[in-house]
Design a protein around this nucleic acid. Structure first.
Length: 107
DNA sequence: CATCTGACGACCG
DNA sequence: GCGGTCGCCAGAT
């Protein structure tokens, strides 16, 4: 299985926006669902914004030391956290509506 | 070849 | 809202 399409798709995610593993899996019709997307991200080559891919509901599924780093990268992009999760209502990215998508204001 | 192990997510109590 | 279970499936041991 080649992850190339997955990385190409993930690279489209704008700064300050996030998606979920399940979403990636559905968008690309990956067999095996979100877990397959997770495997792809675990082998992420440089240049791919892996930190913008979260678990369902906006939770971080990475473990230390990645989780800390991921949280830091997201915060740096102005992504707001509500406890241990990302405020999906505000940052979730919908490719179909990408035309209007722009970084949330007031960081 | 048998098992275990996940960067998942839907369900259920 | 939270933790446990189960289906899924490719790699590693």
């Amino acid at each position: 299985m080649s992850w190339t399409p997955v990385y190409r798709w993930v690279r489209q995610i704008p700064r300050g926006r996030v998606v979920t593993y399940g979403q990636v899996a559905r968008a690309l019709r990956l067999p095996g669902g979100g877990r397959t997307a997770g495997r792809a991200m675990a082998a992420c080559p440089p240049g791919v914004p892996w930190h913008r891919v979260l678990g369902a509901g906006g939770c971080l599924l990475t473990r230390e030391p990645y989780s800390s780093f991921q949280r830091q990268l997201l915060a740096r992009e102005g992504v707001e956290f509500l406890g241990a999760r990302v405020n999906m209502a505000r940052h979730h990215w919908h490719p179909a509506r990408a035309r209007k998508s722009r970084p949330p204001r007031g960081v």
